[in-house]
């Protein structure tokens, strides 16, 4: 397929890291949309430390992740009782507040102009390593007891509770884990671009990452990569019709929600299953219609 330039691949991988943070909360059924704030915390921690002469990327990453994790914990204690749309509204609101804050403290954040001076040391190998690491971790989790708990929490929190899942603890854990990955993604982004700007952490970013997470799907660890790939490549594939790309990604999002509620990855797996059953020639009910007669 055309358009997979090295830059495009780097962009896909960079976005995929961010999408994993959205995947984490959505896979537990939490409509928590503060991930842009945590990405911003990770990116600005890197840039602010760099502008004060702390150039170690490790120190920057750990600082950003630490601040994000602690604020996520505090935030969760405040919003733990909220679920569904209410949690969504509060966390979208936080994104707006965060934008206002970075724009209005130019001494620290550079204001609307952003902050330059982050070392440009993230390239393709680092991005491949980061995404590879996340894939291994989330593939392992998906097939573990923890993965089963998360799936149950997403599908039916009431049943999850009656099957021994500590719903509040697991939700909080997912929220904090999401903030950690988001801050990491923010730090990577800062080191990939060499600067940070408030334009990277606004409502548009929120929609973009949400779109990637939903299109890829939250029921399989490969979802974030597929989502990042599709949404990142749409503008490339539509080279001469750039103006259409929001329309096309909106349409893909809508079609995914309508026809593949588990996202592209989940949808392909279900279709694959049906195909296998059809090829084997088994009847759809496995011959169970005769069960009561034969017993």
């Amino acid at each position: 397929m055309a358009g997979f330039t090295p830059t495009a691949i780097e962009l896909i991988l960079l976005n995929a890291v961010g999408v994993f943070s959205v995947y984490i909360v959505l896979s537990g059924g939490l409509f928590a949309f503060a991930f842009v704030v945590f990405m911003g915390i990770g990116a600005y921690a890197a840039a602010i430390l760099a502008s004060h002469g702390h150039s170690s990327m490790l120190v920057q990453a750990l600082t950003g992740i630490g601040i994000a994790a602690v604020s996520a914990m505090l935030l969760f204690l405040m919003v733990a009782r909220l679920r569904g749309i209410y949690l969504g509204i509060v966390t979208v609101g936080l994104t707006a507040i965060f934008g206002a804050l970075i724009n209005n403290f130019p001494h620290l954040t550079g204001g609307p102009l952003g902050l330059p001076g982050v070392s440009l040391n993230v390239h393709l190998p680092a991005l491949i390593a980061a995404v590879g690491f996340l894939c291994v971790v989330f593939a392992a989790i998906q097939h573990s007891k923890l993965g089963r708990r998360v799936k149950l929490l997403r599908t039916d929190p009431l049943v999850a509770g009656t099957l021994g899942v500590n719903v509040r603890l697991l939700s909080g854990g997912l929220f904090v884990a999401s903030s950690v990955v988001a801050a990491f993604a923010g730090c990577l982004q800062a080191h990939y671009l060499g600067f940070v700007s408030p334009d990277s952490f606004n409502f548009t970013t929120l929609i973009l990452f949400l779109e990637m997470a939903v299109i890829g799907g939250v029921s399989h660890w490969a979802g974030p990569i597929v989502g990042a790939l599709v949404v990142t490549m749409i503008p490339q594939w539509l080279q001469s019709f750039q103006i259409l790309s929001p329309v096309v990604s909106g349409a893909i999002l809508l079609l995914t929600i309508l026809f593949l509620p588990e996202g592209i990855v989940g949808g392909v797996l279900v279709l694959g299953r049906s195909a296998v059953i059809a090829l084997r020639g088994e009847p759809r009910n496995g011959g169970v219609g005769t069960r009561t007669e034969t017993r």
Partner: peptide
């Protein structure tokens, strides 16, 4: 809360069946 009661060895079924419809019987 319900998870702690479940861990005491209490199991239940539901009047309106609550299963994971997109998961296998075994799962």
């Amino acid at each position: 809360r319900s998870h702690a009661i479940a861990r005491l060895g209490v199991s239940r079924t539901f009047q309106l069946i609550r299963l994971l419809r997109f998961s296998s019987v075994r799962e």
